[in-house]
């Protein structure tokens, strides 16, 4: 239920930190861990997810009153799958390299709990305006975490950020960072840090 006290600005801002999908809600960890081996992949995944999230939120918010409760999950999934396929085809047609790098993880956005979670928890209970703001906020919150993860992993694992070499020649790349364990390590440290910051803010 949307609290009446939530201002419109808060609907956007909450996704950035206070209710960040990755750091706080721990939603959508599969793509977070799997594709963030470079900054570009992180951005692409974040934007693709944001697009799907935003479009699905709008549509579902519009039709929320005509969907019978019994088939709501099925309807959400069909809507989400449609948008995911649109993104998938778009990437394959116009950015084949990114499409190849992200591979199966674009179609897998369908089952990203972040998107279904927001539909169930927010878009199906709020008007279109708020759903748009929520979608944008959550999408940006997801994107920045993925991008930062990708940047750190690429910097340590390849010595570059967005494929631009940053580290000196003599830098030995940390191979583990672009492998799956590196994703777990970095994400773990991220979540630990965010908890630490939140704790200090409370005290």
């Amino acid at each position: 239920m949307a609290k009446k006290s939530n201002s419109l600005t808060y609907e956007v801002v909450k996704g950035l930190w206070n209710e960040n999908p990755v750091l706080i809600q721990l939603l959508g960890l599969c793509p977070t861990l799997a594709v963030t081996n470079s900054a570009v992949n992180g951005v692409a995944m974040g934007l693709a997810t944001t697009f799907v999230l935003l479009c699905s939120s709008i549509l579902i918010s519009v039709i929320r009153k005509i969907i019978p409760a019994q088939v709501r999950i099925a309807s959400y999934i069909v809507v989400i799958a449609t948008f995911v396929t649109v993104v998938d085809k778009f990437l394959a047609a116009y950015t084949p390299d990114i499409s190849k790098a992200l591979g199966a993880f674009i179609p897998l956005i369908v089952v990203n709990c972040l998107i279904l979670g927001r539909q169930e928890a927010f878009a199906s209970k709020n008007n279109v305006g708020r759903s748009i703001l929520d979608g944008i906020g959550m999408g940006i919150g997801f994107t920045w975490v993925l991008t930062l993860l990708g940047m750190i992993r690429e910097l340590l694992g390849e010595g570059s950020i967005f494929a631009i070499s940053i580290m000196p020649e003599s830098f030995n790349t940390w191979l583990v960072m672009i492998l799956p364990p590196g994703a777990f390590l970095t994400l773990g440290i991220f979540i630990g840090l965010s908890n630490w910051i939140n704790e200090r803010r409370v005290n």
Binding site: I67, P68, Q70, S75, V78, K89, F90, A92
Partner: peptide, 29 residues
């Protein structure tokens, strides 16, 4: 009845959109 109608409409629309989109992107792919 409502359930069937709503799901059918959504699925049909989805199918329509996708076949349209596929027509645009398929040659490029």
């Amino acid at each position: 009845a409502k359930m069937i109608i709503v799901l059918t409409v959504i699925a049909t629309l989805s199918g329509g959109i996708l076949s349209f989109w596929n027509g645009i992107t398929a040659p490029k792919i």
